[in-house]
Computed example of a mutant assay.
Amino acid sequence: MTRSPALAARLALARALLPEAAALALSYFARVATLTVEAKANGQDVVSIADREVEQLVRARVAEAFPGDGFLGEEFGAAPTRSGFLWVLDPIDGTSCFVHGLRNWCIALALVEDGQTVAGFILDPNAGELFAAVVGEGASLNDAPIHVDIHTDLRHGLTSIGASFRVPAAHVAAVIERLLGAGGMFVRSGSGALSLAHVACGRLAAYYEPQMHAWDCLAGLLLIREAGGWTGPFNEDGDFTRADRAIGCAPQLREDLLAVLGDPPALLTR
């Protein structure tokens, strides 16, 4: 894929602003015990000033450089696009880990052009790792090419599973039971975006979350595809404001993973 000047300019901005966003997030993380934390839907769905300040920083930089671009962020909602480009941001994915002093969090940023995800970035500030993908150009970790693990299976690889209040607990428990029954093993890190990135670089075999939002997973799903993996359909109607099922894995695991997952659950709340 040949990058258009418009896309190239936005990729340059993304790479420039992500370190600044990471520095801001880390400054709050260094004094996390003093932060005010608010519950949104329940005690497991929380937000801090760090989330809001990081999102406002990225929004401001994008608006200054490309005032016609749209923006969809977890904390401040959607602004429509006039240029065809839409920036999709989770300022801190893994806020529950963040506010408890755990390092399993990241910044997830995707760029959508005319409804297609064309670039994705997942930055893990604690590990100093930047995962990046551009459609048709492959995926990288700190600028070195990465690939999913094409040799593993469900019995030998790790499957990361996400959960939330939006999904019946019985569904998640049944998936874990079937996975264990098939000889597999599950992990849960607290950051779905970071787990998707870890599938892309071969650390994890697969990731599944029954209901994710676009800001959590668009970047990671593109990373997996560009790293040679398979992802399930997500928001195919183009409505990035609603949650949907997110699946990503090494390609040889597709059928076995789908058998373990079963039918998608109904969305309880939006």
Rank of each mutant, 00 (worst) to 15 (best):
Ala250Cys: 00
Glu75Gly: 14
Gly192Arg: 08
Ile161Ser: 05
Ala25Tyr: 10
Ala227Thr: 00
Leu258Gln: 14
Ala21Arg: 09
Leu7Lys: 04
Asp114Trp: 15
Ser160Cys: 00
Ile247Pro: 03
Thr152Pro: 03
Phe29Gly: 02
Glu38Tyr: 07
Phe71Tyr: 13
Ala173Tyr: 10
Val187Ser: 10
Arg254Lys: 12
Leu17Lys: 00
Ala250Arg: 00
Leu17Asn: 01
Val47Cys: 09
Ala197Trp: 02
Ser191Leu: 11
Glu55Ser: 07
Thr95Cys: 02
Asn142Lys: 08
Gly73Pro: 00
Gly220Phe: 12
Gln252Pro: 02
Glu38Pro: 00
Ala266Val: 13
Leu130Ala: 03
Arg166His: 12
Arg52Glu: 07
Gly77Arg: 08
Pro91Met: 06
Leu24Gly: 05
Leu109Ile: 15
Gly77Trp: 06
Ser195Asn: 04
Leu109Cys: 13
Ala110Phe: 06
Thr241Cys: 07
Ala193Asp: 00
Arg178Thr: 11
Ala16Gly: 06
Phe131Ala: 04
Ser191Lys: 10
Ser4Met: 10
Pro233His: 05
Leu222Trp: 14
Ala259Ser: 09
Lys40Leu: 08
Gly162Asp: 04
Pro264Phe: 01
Pro67Glu: 08
Leu179Asp: 04
His147Ser: 15
Gln44Val: 07
His100Ala: 03
Tyr208Glu: 14
Ala205Ser: 10
Glu236Leu: 08
Pro19Asp: 14
Pro19Lys: 04
Leu89Gly: 11
Arg203Met: 04
Gly84Phe: 05
Val99Ser: 15
Gly94Met: 03
Ala163Met: 12
Ile92His: 08
Glu55His: 13
Ala8Pro: 02
Ala12Thr: 15
His198Asp: 05
Ala127Leu: 06
Trp87Met: 03
Ala41Phe: 15
Ala33Thr: 15
Val46Asp: 07
Ala127Trp: 01
Gly192Trp: 13
Met185Trp: 04
Ser140Tyr: 05
Glu226Cys: 07
Glu209Gln: 15
Pro67Tyr: 12
Leu221Tyr: 02
Ala79Trp: 02
Leu158Arg: 06
Phe240Glu: 01
Asp69Trp: 02
Cys106Trp: 05
Glu177Cys: 12
Val148Arg: 07
Ala174Lys: 02
His198Ala: 11
Val118Ala: 05
His171Ser: 12
